[in-house]
C-alpha cells in the first residue's frame, strides 16, 4: 500500500514539474519555431511551410540591423564601464572600512532604481541636454552606469569580502605597488564576480527601452529594443513572422556572451586557501 502511495506521489510530482517546465518552455519554443514559419501565429507549431523568407526581410531592414550594432555598443560600453568602476569601488569600499557602508549602499541602490526608472526621466533628460549628451551613446551609457553601479558594487563587495586579505598582504610584502597588487592578484581572483556583474549589466542594458528611447533622437543610433517596433504595422500590431525572426536575432548575442564567458572563464572560484 505504502509503495503504491509512493509511486502515486512521485507521479503527481513529476506531472507537476512537467507542467511547470512546459509553462516556461513554451515561449522559448515559440521563439525557436515561429521565425521559420511562413504564417504568423502565436501557437507553438511545426513551421509549415518552413521558410527563411522572414529572415531575408529582416536582414533587408537596414535600420533594424544597424540597431543591433547600436545595442552592442550601448550594452558593451556600459558593461565595461560598470564592471571596471564597480570592481575598483567595491574593493576600495570593502578594504577601507567605510563607516555606515551598508546604509550607504542600500540608500544608493534604492535611489538607483529611480535613476533608470520612469520618474526621473524628465530631470535626466534636462541634465543630459544641459551637458550636451542628448542623442549620444555616451549619454545613454552614463545614465545606465549611474543606475546600475550601486547594485554592481553591492554584488561585488561580497566577492571582495570573500577574498582572504593575506593574498594582498603577501603581494605587498613581496614588493608589489598597490596598483600592481590590484591588477595581478585582486582582479584575477575577483574575475568570477566581475563576470557575473558584467553579464548582468549587459542584459540590463540590452533589454532596456525607455532610457535610449528618450535620450536618443537619430534613428541611426537607436538600439534593437526600439527598432523591433519597426516590425509593427501602422496600426500598432506586431507582424508576428518578422518580430519573431528579429527577436531570435536579438536573443543570440546574450546567449553567445553567456556561453562564451562560461566556457572561457567559468563561473567558479579557484579555491586555494583553507579556512
Amino acid at each position: 500500500m505504502s509503495a503504491f502511495r509512493m509511486i502515486l506521489s512521485r507521479l503527481a510530482f513529476s506531472i507537476f514539474t512537467t507542467l511547470c517546465g512546459a509553462f516556461f518552455a513554451l515561449p522559448m519554443l515559440w521563439l525557436l519555431l515561429a521565425p521559420f514559419n511562413a504564417r504568423g501565429t502565436l501557437a507553438v507549431e511545426i513551421p509549415r511551410p518552413f521558410t527563411l523568407e522572414n529572415f531575408e526581410r529582416v536582414f533587408a531592414n537596414t535600420f533594424a540591423m544597424r540597431a543591433l550594432l547600436n545595442s552592442l555598443i550601448l550594452a558593451g560600453g556600459t558593461m565595461i564601464t560598470v564592471t571596471l568602476v564597480a570592481t575598483l569601488a567595491a574593493y576600495a569600499l570593502s578594504r577601507a572600512e567605510v563607516p555606515y557602508y551598508d546604509l550607504l549602499t542600500y540608500g544608493l541602490i534604492l535611489f538607483s532604481s529611480v535613476v533608470t526608472g520612469t520618474a526621473a526621466m524628465v530631470p535626466i533628460f534636462l541634465l543630459a541636454n544641459a551637458l550636451g549628451l542628448v542623442d549620444t551613446y555616451l549619454g545613454v551609457i552614463m545614465v545606465f552606469t549611474g543606475g546600475l553601479l550601486p547594485t554592481a558594487i553591492f554584488i561585488l563587495r561580497d566577492f571582495v569580502e570573500g577574498l582572504p586579505r593575506s593574498y594582498e598582504e603577501s603581494a605587498m610584502v613581496s614588493g608589489a605597488s598597490p596598483w600592481q597588487m590590484v591588477r595581478d592578484v585582486v582582479m584575477p581572483l575577483l574575475r568570477p564576480g566581475m563576470m557575473v556583474v558584467g553579464i548582468w549589466t549587459f542584459v540590463q542594458v540590452w533589454g532596456a527601452f525607455l532610457v535610449p528611447f528618450v535620450l536618443l533622437r537619430t534613428p541611426e543610433r537607436m538600439p534593437a529594443a526600439i527598432a523591433i517596433y519597426s516590425f509593427y504595422t501602422e496600426a500598432g500590431t506586431p507582424i508576428l513572422t518578422l518580430t519573431s525572426a528579429y527577436a531570435l536575432l536579438y536573443a543570440i548575442p546574450v546567449l553567445a556572451l553567456y556561453l562564451f564567458v562560461n566556457a572561457r572563464y567559468g563561473f567558479r572560484f579557484f579555491g586555494g586557501i583553507k579556512r
Binding site: 593574498y167 598582504e169 603577501s170 603581494a171 595581478d184 581572483l189 574575475r191
Partner: peptide, 12 residues
C-alpha cells in the same frame, strides 16, 4: 619576506 599561516599562494 613573509610566509603566511595560510601560505597565500595566488591560486590563479
Amino acid at each position: 619576506a613573509m610566509v603566511f599561516q595560510d601560505y597565500a599562494l595566488y591560486p590563479h
